[in-house]
Amino acid sequence: MATTVNQGPDAASRGRAVPPAAGPPGGLAAESADDLADSAAIRASLQEPERFAVLYDRHAAALHRYAGRRVGDEVAEDLVAATFLAAFRARQRYDLARPSARPWLFGILTKEIARRHRTEKARFRALERAWSDRPVDGLADQVAADVSARAARAPLAAALLCLSSAERSVLLLIAWGDLSYGEAAQALGIPVGTVRSRLNRARRKVSEALGGTNPVAVTEERS
């Protein structure tokens, strides 16, 4: 189970509370669960476990969408449930200095998806076949960009299959999970430099599979 781990058993008592990201400081609104950072909700959940529910409300949809794209809706359902259960059990070890639990949750989910790599591969193989058989000829689809996007789907699905699981995770966490390089590093428990090099490798492989002649050397980082 992927959990970020960097504190002793008494982490909860040593961790520092993170002030609410928004809302009037010290006002009544700051007391409501909605205004607290994830880390504060996790800390509160050590004494009042039901406070953990706010993490589900904030992140479940994004996690589900990400898992759904990779392994399909039905399996995503199980993986998201497993992710929150694992996160809840590991919450004592959450690094409270990190206000957003998003990278942590995506990291746990990534581990869960890795266990289902066969499901993922079968899914993408099926998608590749389906898209290869579908001609791009609808009049409404004649917009050039759309045609090129549609034409790329089958080879793209095939290209994702050819990546190592480590490369695929980095690429998809960034492209589909909307994680920054730093967040992906946190999620996977690897240095940012490794994220960057894996991402470049993955992008180059995908680009080549799509017939690109200009391998990527871009390392722009969001946030």
């Binding site: 589900h64 794209r69 995503a76 996007a149 793209l156």
Partner: peptide, 21 residues
């Protein structure tokens, strides 16, 4: 269209078949 844009398109396409939680 670079590969990240293609991936975005792929993601959006897959989303159409997803029902969500």
């Amino acid at each position: 269209m670079n590969e990240l844009m293609s991936l975005q398109d792929l993601g959006d396409t897959l989303d159409q078949e997803l029902r969500g939680p």
